[in-house]
Design a protein around this nucleic acid. Sequence first.
DNA 1: CTGAAAGCGCTTACAG
DNA 2: CTGAAAGCGCTTACAG
Lengths: 348, 348
Amino acid sequence: MVTIIDVAKKANVSKSTVSQYLNKRYKYMSLETKARINEAIEELNYIPNHVGRSLRQKKTAMIGVIVANILHNFSTQFTRGIEDICNEHGIQVILCNADDNPIKERHYIEMLKARQVDGLFVFPTGDNHDLYEEMLKANFPLVFIDRFVDELDIDAVLIDNFKATSLAVEHFKSNVFKNMGILTTTLVNQVTTRIERIEGFKKALSHHNLPFHQEWINGVEILSMQRLLECMFSKQKKPEAILAGNDLTLTEILKFAKNKGYKIPQDFALIAIDHITYASHYDPTITTIVQPVDYLTQEAFKLMNRKMKCKSNENLKPKEIIRVPPELLVRQSSLNTKQSKESGEDGI
Amino acid sequence: MVTIIDVAKKANVSKSTVSQYLNKRYKYMSLETKARINEAIEELNYIPNHVGRSLRQKKTAMIGVIVANILHNFSTQFTRGIEDICNEHGIQVILCNADDNPIKERHYIEMLKARQVDGLFVFPTGDNHDLYEEMLKANFPLVFIDRFVDELDIDAVLIDNFKATSLAVEHFKSNVFKNMGILTTTLVNQVTTRIERIEGFKKALSHHNLPFHQEWINGVEILSMQRLLECMFSKQKKPEAILAGNDLTLTEILKFAKNKGYKIPQDFALIAIDHITYASHYDPTITTIVQPVDYLTQEAFKLMNRKMKCKSNENLKPKEIIRVPPELLVRQSSLNTKQSKESGEDGI
DNA sequence: CTGAAAGCGCTTACAG
DNA sequence: CTGAAAGCGCTTACAG
C-alpha cells in the first residue's frame, strides 16, 4: 500500500506539500514542485486513502439511504436517481433495506451513524421516533422520503398524494365510472402515506359528488389482499373502478383478475399509482399515475445539501415538506369500453 | 460527538481498557470495570467511530458491489441477497451502477479502492482488464458475478448458461416446436455471457437434431430489437419459438407482440431467462428459467469470505468458476396449443 | 488486570 | 513557497 509519505519521499517534498497538491491548493506552489509531485503520484500509482482523510476532516462524503422496502419499484428509482446526483458531487451512497421492519431500520441508522455518514435519506417505517428526534437535536442532516412524521420537524420530499388520488377519481368520473374503490398496502406505522391516499380519495369522491362506499376503501397487508378482493367481488354490488395505491398492490389485483377471470376494464377499470415497467405492453395497457422521480430526487438532494452545509441550527429554515406533482398516463385499463372506444396513448 | 476518551474518563479507566471492552476481550477484565464501562457507554450514548477503527485496523468491513446495469432485475436480486448475508457478518455494502459503461466502472473501482473496501463484487463490463489484473496481483479480494474474463484468473459465480439454453431447447422440442431462435442483449464487451448463451443454444439445437437458422440467433442492443424482430417476422418463414436471453429482452419481445398483434404462444412460443415479476399473472403466463439467486449469493459470499481471510497468495486455490444450475418454470407462453391443452404450473 | 505509547493515513493551522 | 507538528478516534503490542 503506497501512502502520502512514499509520494513525498519520491518527490522530495514534505507530506504537507503533497497534501496541498491533492487538495488542489496550488496557490503558493511552484510549478516545478507541482510537476514533481504529479510525476511521483503517477509512477507510484498512488490513490489517497479516503479513510485517513475522513478521520481527519470529520466527514466521509458518504450518505446513507434506508428504504422501507426495496421491493417497491419507487425505492429502486429513487436510489438510482440519488446515486447519480451524489456521484456528480463526489458522494458515495450506502443503500440499506429496512424491509418494513423498524428494528432493522434502527440497526441501520446506528450502523450508518457509526460509519460517520454525512447525511441520511430515510423512508421512515414510523417507529423510531426517539432516534429521529435525537438526530434532529444533534442537527444531523436527515431527510425523509415518501413519508414523514407529523410530530417531528424533519424535512421530507414526497409525492402529492391528494393530487394523485384526485387525478384518478376525476379520470374515472370522466369515463363515466361512478362506483369506485381504492386498495393500498399498509403497515401499522405508515400512518401518513395511508391516511393521505385514503383521505385524498374520499375527499375527491365527495368533491365530485360521487357515491361513497366504505367497504371499497382499504389499506391492508399484501397477504390479505386476495381474500379482501374475493370478498369485495362476491357481493351483489361490485366496484366499477379501482385505484391501486402502489405497484405491489397492482400485482395483487392483476393476479386476482387473472385467477378469477375478470376482464379489465370491462369488469372493472384500473389505475395504479407508481411507475410500472410493463404498463405499456400489458394486456390491457395500464393507466398509471407516476411520480416525477428526477425532480423528486433533485429536490431531495437540494434539501440534503443545504443541511450538510450549515453547521449551526440558526440558518435553518423551518420544517419543509416538498410535495412533487404526479402525472396521469392514460392507457387502456381505465377506459370505459361502453362509452368510448379510443385506446391508450401508447396502446395497441 | 462523544469519543472513547469521554467514556474512559467517565468510567475512570484508560481508553485502552475501553477499547478492550468494545472488542469483547473480557478475559482479564474485572467484572467491576466491565460494569463501569458499560454504564458510562449507556449514559453517554456512545457509538464507536468506525472510521477511526477502520484506519487503525486497515479494514473497513465494507464491500463494494458494481453491477453492470441496475435495470436488470437480477442485479437487484443479487444486491438484496448479498446485502442480507453481509449484514449478518457485520459488513456494509456500497452499491454502484456502471450503467454498462466501462468508464463509469473504472471510476467506481478507483473510488471504492480509495475508500478501502475489503472486497469487491463486480459484474464486469469487460473493458478494464488492466485494473482487474492489478487487483489480482495485489491479491485484492475480487469476485466476478454473472460474467467472467477468460484471460484473467479471477473467480466468478454465474448461472450455467449451457444448462439454461438446453433446458429451453428441450422444452420447446417436447412441445413439438422445431424452428426456434434466441434473442438477447449484447454490448461489444460482454463477450462471455453472449457467447455462452448463443453457443449453448446452438449446441442444444445440434444435439437434438433441430434445424439451425442463423438469422434467428441474435444478440443486439435493446434499441435495435424492435427493428430486428420486425425484420424476422416479415419473412416468409417465421420462428415458432423464441428464447429471451434476459428480462429486458423479454420486455422488448412482449412490446413487439402487443404492437403487431401476435398472440403468444399461438403465433410464437416464448421462454425467458431471468426472474420475471409478472410472469405468473401476465396473459399468457410466462415460462421462465430462473437463477437460484439465494444459492448464487451464498456461493459468491463464501468465495469472497475466503479471499478476505487469506492474506498471502499461497493458500489460494486456482481460479474458480462456480456455475449455479438454473430451473425451468413451465407456464403458458411456451405450450403448444395445437398439441396439448394443459396449462402452466401456476396459471389459470 | 490495566495503562502509556505508538501509529494507522491523512489535513491544517502555523512558522519560517 | 514549503515543512514540522499536532491531532482526527481508534487498536494493539507491551510493560508492569
